[in-house]
């Protein structure tokens, strides 16, 4: 693990993301974070989104798309799967998917497949802290707090400390 002073400040990006999300919030919107980074972001953003939209009915959910991943046959089941929590009716719901880093698009494909097993949403949008480039599928985020090219051999990793503060680190790709 290397700490790089050039790395984006995740806390700053969180504020930018919240501002950029504003036009996407509709009266009936679900904020769904993808485990684990996206879930942390969703947990942080949700209370303030609720505060800034007191008349809207916003709901929060979490997804772990391990059961839908396309690399299962190569890599097996992810060692740490967490239960998805979708405590609302997906049918006709506007959904904003949140993730930390957008890369190949494969996690998002898996997450969308899982969502459709809960019902038929009215719409799905995707918002991320960083779009690092390198997409391999025709999927792209509607909102990215930052676009930043990262070489394929490196992994941009979000972590959360004991005070719920988020930070990015660069790691060698497994």
């Amino acid at each position: 693990m290397t700490l790089n002073p050039q790395l984006p400040n995740a806390e700053d990006l969180l504020l930018i993301l919240e501002q950029k999300l504003a036009p996407f919030i509709q009266p009936k919107t679900a904020i769904v974070g993808i485990h684990s980074g996206g879930a942390w972001i969703a947990e942080r953003l949700f209370p303030s989104l609720q505060q800034s939209h007191p008349d809207y009915s916003l709901v929060l959910g979490m997804l772990d798309s391990s059961f839908y991943r396309d690399d299962y046959n190569q890599r097996g089941l992810h060692a740490e799967t967490r239960p998805s929590q979708i405590p609302f009716d997906v049918e006709e719901q506007h959904i904003i998917l949140l993730d930390d880093v957008f890369y190949t698009g494969r996690t998002i494909r898996a997450a969308m497949n899982e969502l459709f097993d809960y019902g038929r949403p009215a719409s799905i949008s995707l918002a991320v802290l960083v779009d690092r480039g390198g997409r391999e599928l025709p999927i792209c985020p509607q909102v990215a707090a930052l676009e930043l090219e990262i070489p394929p051999q490196q992994k941009l990793q979000l972590s959360r400390d004991e005070n719920n503060q988020l930070q990015f680190t660069l790691e060698a790709h497994a």
Binding site: F67, Y68, Y72, L77, D117, Y118, G119
Partner: peptide, 9 residues
């Protein structure tokens, strides 16, 4: 507990 009780693994 979902509408579709299957996953594609």
């Amino acid at each position: 507990e979902r509408e579709v009780k299957k996953v594609p693994l």
